[in-house]
Amino acid sequence: MRLTDDAPADPILTGKGLTKVYASTGSGMARKAAVDGIDVSLLPGECLAIIGESGSGKTTLSRLLLGQLRPDAGQVAYEGRPVLHGSQAAKALARDSALVFQNPFASLDPRWTIGRSVAEPLLAARRRGSGHLWHRRQDGTGLADQVAKVLSAVQLDPDRLMTAYPSDLSGGQAQRAAIARALIVKPRILLADEPMSAVDVSARVGILHTLQSIMAQSRQQADPSNGMSMIIISHDLGVVQHIADRVMVLVRGKVVEEGPVNAILNHPKQSYTRQLLAAATL
């Protein structure tokens, strides 16, 4: 399953010297770089885990990588093309990527049914494709089928859940619905920002298995270099150990350790990483 060393594919997404400084709110407070000169690359079909405590800049980094924030210094490149605001590469990156947030109930519109929420990105993509932004009679052919398929892929019962509202779901189910919403447009990059932090431990395992099976499915495709890549953000090494190929540890906006997950788990170099390991033992 793991990527083999003999065929190093070109990275799908790279960031060079990424820096983001937030304007300080209070007077007299030093301007602190949330992300400070980080280099990162993401291979096709790879799962990269970004680990760090709250305030370490991991969310900022991920938004920079998806082109949602403009870096103060450094550059993001998607398939080798620089992602500049409004460029073709930026549009392609937005089209080919999808997001999963920490709190599933905040990421699903409480007044929409699950089916409608899940279908939304697909409809948006079709509108874009047809060029008729306000076409009343949209081509909805097979929409319900596709929603049902993607809900099944995240182990949710489409028959029951497609017409349910988020408030009728448990946290774990809602998060899987949010994952389905991200998957329906077949993204090449899936960004999961603390996808398991807001749900309880048994639901976390369910979500983990869902993400694992999605990765496994994408790896079984005919062209492995075209598989889906995933960036998973977490504060907990234990949660990502089974799914990540590579781990990047952030402390205060800087990378302190990076490497294959086995190397990090077995031979942590930094004391901070050792603390993370200690915190993740039973």
Partner: peptide, 8 residues
Amino acid sequence: QSARHSGV
């Protein structure tokens, strides 16, 4: 934010 990211 998701909807906007999807291009809505």
